[in-house]
């Protein structure tokens, strides 16, 4: 397995180089002039504008040939310097740290709550397939699956923010400066409540149905009939035999979801004014802040490739029949 992993790591490096060329090329092809964005305030006198613009091009390295710019960018990325945001005028790592932290926090909680709810629900509906409970869950989950996230967002804001005002409507944390310690932590986490509820609610449908389908397939297998014929308890049949075997496709989505921990949801973040990375990325794209965009898409490329490797290893661990070679 070690050799396999080493080989895959080699592929990852090669793939990343190709991805980096593609990303960098796209950023160069896109319209607009980042140096211009840097020259804040249009109403500079002409000579001031020229000075500022020239300085901005030098600062961003735009006066160099594109190939030189690419290698310069690659070198800084490899050394952990992700560049400098032309909008916030801060190092990318500094300006993105807090939003990324908020995104990861929300996604981890979202992931935990989603799996805590959907796995038992998926199993329960599979076991009760076609019964009232199953049909009721199907209806609820299809609603969550079908309706746009922002509709839930506004609905929950109205419900829990205005009619029964138990959660803050927007923001990423408490603005009460008198709070300290646990009281502060609790107040901060209250701000996560509404985005979290929407996140979980809009995720229920997909995963519940996924788990349900996998379980239904597993429950149809001969080994389940054999287990029941052996007189094993139904709980043992479901959890030890059916569920474990349904885990294989589950590994695929779990890995995907794990990677998505670092990806923000623009809609949820904008609806609840949650200062997350999705918002940062979309704003950066709109404002041609390419250093931020390039840094994050490179980061996501690394995550995706590493995630695929982890997924393959996960298959091997979950299913003894799978051998890595």
């Amino acid at each position: 397995m070690a050799r396999y992993i080493l080989r895959r790591l080699g592929y990852i490096v090669f793939t990343l180089l190709i991805v980096s060329v593609i990303l960098f090329s796209i950023s160069k092809i896109m319209p607009g002039d980042p140096a211009l964005m840097l020259v804040d305030g249009r109403k500079l006198r002409p000579e001031q504008f020229e000075i500022a613009y020239k300085a901005a091009r030098e600062k961003l390295g735009l006066d160099e040939p594109v190939v030189v710019q690419y290698f310069s960018w690659l070198r800084t990325m490899v050394t952990g310097d992700f560049g400098w945001s032309t909008v916030t005028r801060l190092p990318v790592a500094q300006m993105a740290a807090a939003p990324l932290g908020n995104t990861v926090k929300l996604n981890i909680f979202g992931l935990i709550f989603t799996f805590i709810i959907t796995i038992p629900l998926g199993i329960a509906t599979a076991v009760r397939k076609g019964k009232v409970f199953d049909q009721a869950v199907q209806v609820v989950t299809i609603i969550g699956y079908s309706l746009p996230t922002f509709i839930f967002g506004l609905l929950f804001i109205c419900l829990f923010g205005v009619i029964i005002p138990i959660f803050p409507i927007s923001g990423s944390g408490s603005i009460d400066t008198t709070l300290t310690g646990w009281a502060k932590t609790w107040a901060d986490y209250r701000y996560m409540a509404l985005p979290l509820i929407v996140y979980v609610f809009s995720s229920l449908g997909g995963i519940t149905r996924y788990v349900r389908a996998a379980m239904i397939d597993a429950l149809r297998m001969d080994y389940i009939r054999t287990a029941r014929a052996k007189g094993l308890k139904e709980k043992v049949v479901i959890y030890s035999h059916a569920f474990r075997n349904s885990l294989i496709p589950f590994v695929t989505i779990f890995t995907g979801w794990f990677i998505s921990i670092f990806g923000g949801s623009v809609i949820i973040e904008r609806t609840f004014n949650w200062n997350g990375i999705g918002n940062v990325l979309i704003s950066s794209l709109m404002q041609q802040d390419y250093a931020v965009v390039l840094a994050f898409y490179s980061f996501y490329a690394v995550l995706s490739l590493a995630g695929n490797l982890i997924m393959d290893i996960g298959y091997c661990l979950v299913d003894p029949r799978v051998r890595l070679s």
């Binding site: 506004l154 804001i157 109205c158 923010g161 205005v162 005002p165 803050p168 409507i169 927007s170 923001g171 904008r270 609806t271 609840f272 004014n273 200062n275």
Partner: peptide, 13 residues
């Protein structure tokens, strides 16, 4: 920061 779609709800709340 507020969101234009919900800022008046925030004022109300």
């Amino acid at each position: 920061k507020t969101v234009s779609a919900t800022q008046l709800e925030e004022l109300e709340a």
